[in-house]
């Protein structure tokens, strides 16, 4: 499926990041550790945006701020024109550790969002069925997370975020804990799921292959204090091939631009 630049509606951004900075008190309490500085970018409807950078560079901090789980010390984030002031079900989050509720079955995990928001029983059931089907886990409704493999748990995590039908999905290195084979498979699965149920996705990773395989646009981040170094529009046809010459060229280009010092 061809997705060119023109498919993305550039006019109305779903999420705007305005001059966002974040500092933490240093350990002795006297100074400040600046983690993020002057982040400015927009995310457009149904865009797959990848925030890419080396480990420990504050990507998770940035994602938490965008999602409303953490507050910036400078600047603002706007979602659909409104200032983000806390977590909200319009924004879904997929965690690296999956963070499934271990005492709940798969269906209770997926149905958690609709249920706490008091959607009608029938609607909850329908969403559980629909999104478990979307991630390919029909038949595992009554299982507990501890009975599933790593890849299956992350499928539940994705279904749980989808079940709230959010405008924006945040994914914090969701495949970081998986082994290489499962990771490739999950990347393909995520691409299939995203093409089937289009959402705006902001995806954090430190893996260049993963970034190139999934992204419409890659934002390259530098190390502390993190700021934007470069943006790349990826217009390759999907599904992408890891050994395609264009893929390898972009891989080389972006890796060369990476800031590997801490």
């Amino acid at each position: 499926m061809e997705r060119s630049e023109g498919n993305i509606k550039k006019k109305n951004p779903v999420l705007e990041c305005r001059n966002v900075g974040r500092s933490f008190d240093s350990y002795d309490g006297k100074g400040k550790n600046e983690v993020l500085r002057g982040m400015n970018f927009e995310v457009y409807e149904n865009e797959f945006l990848v925030l890419f950078g080396a480990g420990q560079c504050g990507k998770t901090t940035l994602l938490n701020i965008l999602a409303g789980l953490d507050m910036p010390t400078e600047g603002e984030v706007y979602a659909n024109g409104e200032k983000v002031s806390g977590p909200a079900p319009e924004r879904g989050f997929v965690y690296q550790k999956t963070s499934l509720f271990p005492w709940m079955t798969v269906e209770d995990n997926v149905g958690f969002g609709p249920k706490v928001r008091h959607l009608p029983e029938k609607e909850c059931k329908e969403r559980i069925r629909k999104y478990l089907d979307l991630v390919g886990l029909t038949g595992f409704e009554k299982s507990y997370p501890s009975q599933l493999s790593g890849g299956m748990r992350q499928r539940v995590g994705i279904a749980r975020a989808y079940a709230n039908e959010p405008d924006i999905m945040f994914m914090d290195e969701p495949f970081g804990h998986l082994d290489a084979q499962t990771r490739y498979m999950m990347e393909e699965e995520l691409q299939r799921i995203w093409q089937q149920e289009k959402r705006t996705v902001i995806f954090v990773t430190n893996n260049i292959e993963e970034a190139l395989f999934l992204a419409d646009r890659i934002i390259l981040l530098t190390n502390c204090p993190t700021h934007i170094k470069q943006e790349y529009s990826i217009t390759m046809q999907r599904p992408r091939d890891y050994v395609d010459p264009e893929f390898l060229r972009l891989r080389q280009l972006i890796t060369d631009n990476m800031d590997l010092t801490l």
Binding site: A67, G68, L69, G86, P87, A88, P89, R91, G92, F93, Y95, K97, S99, F101, F112, G113, V116, R117, R160, N164
Partner: peptide, 14 residues
């Protein structure tokens, strides 16, 4: 786990 509480809030729990 604070992440579990964060996940619940993110999903709309009060």
């Amino acid at each position: 786990d604070p992440e579990l509480m964060g996940a619940a809030r993110m999903l709309g729990a009060n």
